[in-house]
Design a protein around this nucleic acid. Structure first.
Lengths: 170, 170
DNA sequence: CTCTAACGGTTATATATTATAACTATCTCG
DNA sequence: CGAGATAGTTATAATATATAACCGTTAGAG
């Protein structure tokens, strides 16, 4: 779907994607900038931490190729076999409309499936396939390893405290 | 631009946007679901906290109508008058291409402006307008009030500890 | 028992955010 | 001077999130 390749009008002269300014996730100013009060704002710190966290997650999960939301959905289905889509959406704060393509993808990959709702034929009961169970099992292992690296940085107590504080914000 | 109104084929029979499933930001399951290991994952807790944080930010900042990134950019410009766009981008982890419309908007609203770069005429030196200074001043007050509410929830020490832990993740 | 309102899931679409490539004008340095 | 790098811009893609309306089904009031 890469239309970018279509209009390659001249030669690739711009190698910035690897340069100083491109691909920057964490702050990497060319000269140190003053952050002023921003440096002490919880919201800002949260944002940066979350970006770093997602990046770490994706790296850790490369092998199983799961995005955070997919991972959460699979986990929730495993923990609650037969759940309805609406329930998963409500639990994770997803829009039911957006959940459809997400679940389609999981189904296409043979990880989860919709079973006919009984007795309510409107609803579908969600289950993991055997393959889904296996992949999620591996994903959980990888994720645990990652959490351990986090704990190594924060200390086990620090990690617990962080969880506690974050939950208070929600 | 609301094309949705164009294809109003029948009558609005669906009032779900206000119902149980719609507009859900935080988890609100119809029946309690088991979250399994998800409940103890830093990444997941971060995600939820960040969503709540942005929501709180937007609410607190209604009066000045600033999004988190706009607020950060204005703050950074105030603290470093004359900075170049690239520097702000690097500091905040923004893409220079995405920064253009963002800054255009701030300029359109008369909050910030690009001055000719001296001596490098490629670059633009960013400054706040007087109006920008005033608006940011008010924004900082509102933001401080919000941080105080956060501190009330977490305790002052808790808030400090949270900041410290979050920075370790970045 | 029937009719109506609500629900579960789907589709289509809108909007916001972030990412990538390539372009112009300008600057730097051998 | 000329080649390559840089600052900013444009155009576009990919992703994430939000809203409205639809269908088939269900439940509950009367």
């Amino acid at each position: 779907m890469s239309r970018a390749a279509d209009h390659a009008r001249k030669k690739p002269r711009d190698s910035e994607s690897e340069g100083t300014a491109g691909r920057v996730i964490e702050a990497r100013p060319t000269r140190p900038l003053r952050f002023g009060p921003l440096a002490d704002y919880v919201g800002y710190a949260l944002r940066r931490a979350q970006i770093a966290s997602v990046a770490g997650f994706l790296e850790a999960m490369q092998e199983v190729d799961l995005r955070p939301t997919q991972f959460a959905v699979l986990t929730l289905i495993r923990e609650n076999p037969g759940v309805r889509q609406t329930e998963v959406c409500a639990a994770l704060g997803l829009q039911k409309a957006n959940f459809v393509p997400l679940l389609n993808e999981l189904q296409r990959r043979g990880l989860a499936l919709r079973k006919a709702g009984v007795p309510d034929r409107r609803s579908s009961a969600l289950h993991l396939t055997e393959h889904g169970e296996a992949v999620l099992q591996r994903a959980l292992e990888l994720h645990t390893q990652w959490e351990e690296r986090v704990a190594a940085r924060l200390g086990v107590a620090g990690r617990e405290r962080l969880l506690e504080l974050l939950r208070k914000l929600t």
